[in-house]
């Protein structure tokens, strides 16, 4: 199969907003907890249209996560919303001790993940959240690639009894999935078939990887693109199969190259099927505030960087 990049871009935040409102309307036990970023994360829709289901927790992320843990013990399914940076780095002890260790049914939605956070700069970006969350036992870590997949992973999270971290981005991304797309926990999705090399990508970096694959195909390189919405649990079989069929792997993520998808894929390859592999991601450095396209170029995660990394890995085959 071959996935074409649609011209239609839809905001992940809008998809989230519609979906969470629907959940609060359909399920008496779904409540929304806001770390006072509702107008950024777009969950203010719940405050406006279903205010009884909206619990303002103020600018106090640590308390918010522990309150959520307590709420689960009364049968409530709390959905907590703040920026990925604050979940993963400010409240991670609360998340580990009171949510992950006891496996409580808290949903954690990290908005503004990665590098493109609307000119907010390095204090508000999250380039470590995948690394941090996937190291916690009992944690599920999901990073959807488009607005359709945002809805699908949220539907999964609602039906799953346990902690789930959903990594979202601020801006609009091309629609990749049809409405009848079926998200499965722990399963990768092949978006492009190819024989020379496989790009394994997650979240927002998947549409950039498809763009890179198109460019490379025009140059005669056959590139498979495997999207990994479920970073934990990860689809080991898909990684091994990609290594066997194409013999070279590039991972791509809007995240640090330390500890994220690239590390997760490398862990599988080293133990099961070592093949040449390179990682696209932010290379162990702090970033800054700036316009999206310039940020992608400077921090080496643009489609051009993905394409160049594919060429580099092919030399190692």
């Amino acid at each position: 199969m071959k996935t074409l990049l649609s011209d239609k871009k839809v905001s992940m935040r809008d998809a989230l907003s519609e979906t969470i409102l629907k959940f609060t309307q359909e399920d008496e036990n779904v409540y929304v907890l806001d770390g006072d970023l509702a107008t950024s994360t777009k969950i203010d829709i719940v405050a406006n249209e279903n205010p009884k289901k909206f619990l303002q927790m103020g600018i106090a992320e640590q308390n918010m996560m522990s309150v959520a843990a307590g709420l689960t013990t009364t049968g409530i399914q709390p959905w907590t919303f703040t920026f990925a940076a604050f979940l993963a780095k400010r409240a991670i002890d609360q998340i580990q001790v009171q949510i992950a260790q006891p496996k409580l049914n808290v949903k954690m939605v990290g908005g503004y993940s990665g590098l493109l956070t609307g000119l907010t700069g390095k204090t508000h970006q999250a380039l470590e959240d995948i690394a941090i969350f996937r190291s916690l036992a009992n944690m599920v870590v999901l990073a959807p690639a488009d607005a359709t997949e945002v809805k699908k992973v949220m539907e999964f999270a609602r039906s799953y009894d346990g902690p789930v971290y959903i990594r979202l981005a601020r801006d609009a991304y091309p629609i990749l999935f049809p409405n009848d797309y079926n998200f499965k926990l722990g399963k990768a999705v092949t978006l492009n078939e190819g024989t020379d090399v496989t790009i394994i990508s997650t979240g927002t970096q998947t549409s950039r990887s498809l763009e890179a694959a198109e460019k490379l195909e025009a140059e005669g390189v056959s590139v498979a693109v495997v999207h990994m919405p479920s970073i934990k649990p990860i689809d080991k079989e898909a990684i091994i199969k990609a290594a066997e069929t194409t013999g070279a792997i590039v991972t791509a993520e809007e995240h640090s190259i330390i500890g994220g998808l690239g590390s997760a894929v490398a862990e599988v390859l080293v133990e099961e099927k070592p093949v040449p592999m390179l990682r696209v991601g932010v290379k162990d450095r702090n970033s800054e505030s700036g316009p999206n396209e310039q940020m992608l170029e400077k921090y080496e995660i643009s489609p051009n960087h993905v394409a160049q990394t594919v060429k580099d890995v092919l030399k190692k085959k």
Partner: peptide, 21 residues
């Protein structure tokens, strides 16, 4: 009723229980 150990967290969980009630 709650796992605790890292200080400062239990009171927030108790707030969650009382709020849930």
């Amino acid at each position: 009723d709650m796992s605790t150990g890292s200080l400062g967290q239990g009171i927030s969980a108790a707030v969650g229980m009382a709020l849930g009630a």
